[in-house]
Amino acid sequence: MNVRFELDCATVDEIAAAYGLGAVDARESAAVEHHLDACSQPHAEARELIAAASLVPELLPPVAPSPGLRGRLMATVAETPQEHRLAEPRRPGPIAPMESSRRPWWQFAPLPSAIAAVALAAAVGLGALGLSLNARLAEREAALRAVASADAAYVVEGEAGRGWVIQSGDQALFMADGLAELAAGQLYEFWLIDAEGDAVAAGTLTDTDGVALVTLERDLEGATTFAVTVETERVDQSVNDPVMVAALDA
C-alpha cells in the first residue's frame, strides 16, 4: 500500500462513529487513524464517539464463562512467550560446543527433563506458533503457509531458544523465532532419533536472523525425538549435547 488514502476533517467527523464501531473498511480505518494522529484540530466530538463505541460491550449483561476456561487460559499463558520478551536475546553469547565427550550424547545421557513438558506444550504449539511470528513478512508468510497445512507440530525447547517441528504433508519443517546467535564458523545441526537411539542428520542452519525456517531432509517417520546441536561443521555423528529437543511421539 504505497498510496495513502486521505480524508478531510469533515469526513473524519462524519464517519467517526462508524469507525469507532469497526464499521468502515480497512482503508478508511487507516485514514481516520492517520488523520486523528496528525490533525491540528481537536476533533473532540469524533473522539468522544469513538470512545463511546468501545463501551458498547458494556450494554450486554455479563455472561459467566464455563469454570474450566480460566484454567485453560492460564495453561496457555504459561507456555506463551510475550512479544516484547521474544525480542530480547535469549543468552548473551554464542553457545560453546562441548568437546569433552567422545560418545554421542543420546547413547548415554537421559533426555533433558524439558522433554516431559514438551508433550503438554505441543498441544498449544500451533497457537503459539501462529502468534509468535513477528519477523520479516516473507518469512512469516512462508511460515504461516507451512503452519496452515500442518498435520502435526511439536515444540522444540532448550538453551538455544524455542521452535517448532512441523509435519506438513510429506515434508517436515523446523521453524524458530529468535534462536541464540552462533559464533563465526558454527552451525545448528538437526537430528532425528528413533526409538533405538539411532540418530540421523536432517539438515543444518547458519542464519539465525529473524524467523528461521528449514525444510528437513527427511520426514518424521520412525523418529521419536528431534534434537538440535551446535557444530563447527556438518557431521554424521555428534558428540555434543543438544541445545534444543522435542519428543515427536507426544
Binding site: L60, P62, V63, A64, R70, M74, V77, A78
Partner: peptide
Amino acid sequence: RTGDTEALGELYDRYAGTATA
C-alpha cells in the same frame, strides 16, 4: 508486562463476564 501470569488471571476475573457476553 513483567510476565506475571497471576495478573492476567486477575484481569480475567474482572472482565471475563463482559468478554464472554
